[in-house]
């Protein structure tokens, strides 16, 4: 598991780099090299580090540990075929971590980023909707059972396409530069990340790499099923390409619009699941 964990972290960072490069190329800019995010992480870990004088010290440091820890846990749950609910919980708790990052420093920019992450809680409900749609069809929330179900009846992607779109939107709201990325938009400097520099930021980037890998792997496992390892990596790459197109071509929404659109999507998804539950 240790080598796979390290691989997942670095491959996730590489995917983020590819994402960034693709956005740049779509917008006809040269863009950074694709391993830029890995370099970023290393660069931050070499920088001198201290804790801001206004920060709540213990929380400032431990929130970084928690951020990496919860996504490590999510990774293991996914790989060992545990409950999809746990991954859902960890995704939602990432919000708390973002909130914690923002509030712990005492900086107004961080605080705004943290608070925006709280008000964008609307983006989580599509995730719950897709989880419940999966539960309606497979009768179980264990990832191993979901894989077994898809091995028999074919990918869920074709059975419940709208639920797959819901999960895709959830992933979209978490990638950098997405239309829904209000938590780290530029008018609040770097959002919740603003005051975490040096080693703390390196830890945060590690968490981001692992998070992208886990989210993409969740999508593939839940909606496509078991694939050979290379197939998984290629599908991830395809997903990242599609995400990059969306991110490059859509402007970032204002917080109000972002929450409104996410709420509308949630409403549509709820109706869909009610329909599935009654007639499905």
């Amino acid at each position: 598991m240790i080598p796979y964990l390290l691989f997942a972290t670095f491959f996730g960072l590489l995917l983020l780099g590819i994402h960034r490069k693709l956005i740049a190329r779509i917008q006809r800019r040269p863009g950074p090299p694709i391993w830029q995010e890995i370099l970023h992480t290393l660069k931050f870990s070499f920088k001198s580090t201290w804790i801001p004088a206004t920060a709540s010290e213990v929380l400032f440091v431990s929130v970084v540990l928690i951020a990496i820890g919860i996504w490590t846990a999510a990774f293991f749950v996914l790989v060992t075929g545990g409950s999809l609910l746990i991954i859902f919980a960890i995704y939602m708790l990432h919000k708390i971590v973002e909130h914690g990052f923002g509030l712990s420093s005492g900086s107004p920019y961080g605080k705004f980023g943290g608070v925006r992450s709280v008000i964008s809680a609307a983006s989580e409900i599509p995730l719950f909707v897709s989880v419940s749609a999966v539960a309606i069809f497979t009768g179980s929330l264990q990832i191993s059972d979901i894989i077994a179900y898809q091995a028999e009846t074919g990918p869920l992607l074709f059975t419940i396409p709208l639920a797959a779109i819901a999960l895709y939107l959830v992933i979209l709201s978490k990638v950098p530069a997405s239309p829904f990325a209000i938590v780290e938009s530029k008018e609040i400097v770097s959002g919740y990340k603003t005051e975490h520099f040096g080693v703390w930021r390196a830890g945060l980037e590690t968490c981001n790499g692992l998070k992208s890998y886990v989210l993409l792997l969740t999508f593939i496992t839940v909606f496509i099923g078991a694939l050979p390892f290379l197939g998984i990596l290629l599908t991830m790459l395809l997903l990242v390409v599609s995400l990059a197109f969306v991110c490059a071509l859509c402007p970032m929404l204002s917080p109000f619009d972002s929450v409104t659109i996410q709420t509308i999507i949630t409403g549509i998804m709820l109706i869909y699941v009610l329909y599935l539950g009654v007639f499905g």
């Binding site: 870990s45 580090t49 801001p52 004088a53 820890g69 293991f76 830890g203």
Partner: peptide, 29 residues
């Protein structure tokens, strides 16, 4: 796996703190 969940974040942070560029006094914050 529980050991890894607790250990991986600590490892990342200590690795960073260990190879941090300088050992002298911090800059003025």
């Amino acid at each position: 796996l529980a050991v890894l969940v607790a250990g991986f974040p600590l490892f990342v942070l200590f690795l960073g703190l260990w190879w941090m560029a300088r050992e002298g006094d911090a800059d003025i914050p």
